[in-house]
Design a protein around this nucleic acid. Structure first.
Lengths: 210, 210
DNA sequence: AATTGTGAACCTCTTCACAGCT
DNA sequence: AGCTGTGAAGAGGTTCACAATT
């Protein structure tokens, strides 16, 4: 299949959420213009994004909200449940365990890892914390497909290396470091400092402008 | 000043971190090729990004790590301290209060807000939790410049509206919703679901390919 | 009359490639 | 000899504008 850009995929995610909200409000039909308005983009962008995957609308009428949401769920692979491991049960990690949004979208945290001897063996939310020594056993047992990396930067690369060896191919990385991985492995970064620094840059520019 | 792209700014952030690591290791000189290698990009990209702001290297030699880090800190506005408010003291919010990486980069959380009557008045990490009713007073008192939005999607827009009225112009939004704000206000989004859904899409494509 | 789906035009970002400096 | 800084070329993403459809 033709390579679809990252931005198209992340916009599909936002359309998915938009459609869910509209459905909750009992709205059955929506135009590309309305979806665009809600998300501060252009209607051409919405239509182009969808066009990579098919024709989901009716000319003159727009899109059926339920239909389109289900189509996008299929495209993004949200119709199935994903088994997720969380590595690093610190502040960020613990917050993510209870993050309702994840489970709502079919991402189920099924395994916890941490190498701190004080934490190994403990339970959080009904999940036992494992040492990374037993990583491949747990990954196989729980059929882990995605790993969330919430460990300090120093050890993030080696944690990913271990998980890649067990066959995990998708990572959400919270460590502020660029992870190296084989081509068939995907690493997405969630780096809050980068966004804050962009705000800092923006405010600094503004001050100069004044 | 010429408009610099978001991607350039976020790469500057990663160069900043790369340089900090190199300095910690006692390395004094670095080439664009080395910076590129560490971050999985091309050396031309590194040089081009820097070229928007000046000439910081020496031909034939490369860049002085300390020099370049300080230059980037100035560009990004990291030489000053930023006063940050955190709105929404739930799981995510609480994790962010202790997030060391923020403070290290000069982002100091100086005020907490939450409208849950059980939380208002409590203290976390030496900070009192305020009700949003007193938002403008606190913003003025603590000279808040940046707000982190960690409230449920339903109320995120109205929280931002209130803060904009008090003069806050920069937001880091964790709510899974597109925030509307005036042109002179910047909103950066940190949406973990979007990244996870990109992983879900990637894995789904892979399965089809097999 | 309204709105989609899409080729073409446009714009922006990335990479190339090399002159210029150390 | 080695590496930067940058104009030009190339690639990729976004917007336009309109024919096609309901």
């Amino acid at each position: 299949m033709k390579k679809i850009s990252d931005s198209t995929i992340s916009r599909l995610s936002t359309y998915y959420r938009t459609l869910s909200h509209l459905i909750d409000q009992g709205i059955e039909t929506v135009s590309s213009e309305q979806i665009a308005e809600i998300n501060n983009i252009t209607s051409a962008q919405v239509r182009k994004d969808l066009s990579f995957f098919g024709s989901f609308g009716k000319r003159g009428l727009g899109y059926n909200t339920r239909d389109l949401r289900d189509q996008i769920a299929n495209i993004l692979g949200l119709s199935k449940k994903w088994n997720v491991a969380l590595v690093g049960v610190g502040n960020i990690g613990r917050a993510l365990i209870d993050y309702a949004e994840f489970k709502k979208q079919g991402f189920h945290i099924k395994a916890l890892f941490d190498n701190d001897p004080k934490k190994v063996g403990q339970e959080i939310g009904g999940l036992k914390i494992h040492h990374m020594d037993s990583v491949c056993n747990v990954v196989k047992e729980e059929k882990i497909e995605i790993a969330i990396i919430a460990v300090p930067a120093k050890v993030a690369q080696s944690v990913v290396d271990s998980l890649v060896k067990c066959g995990v191919k998708a990572f959400l990385n919270f460590a502020p470091i660029t992870i190296k991985a084989p081509d068939d492995v995907m690493v997405k970064n969630e780096n809050m400092s980068i966004e804050l620094e962009a705000l800092s840059y923006f405010l600094t520019q503004n001050e100069k402008g004044d």
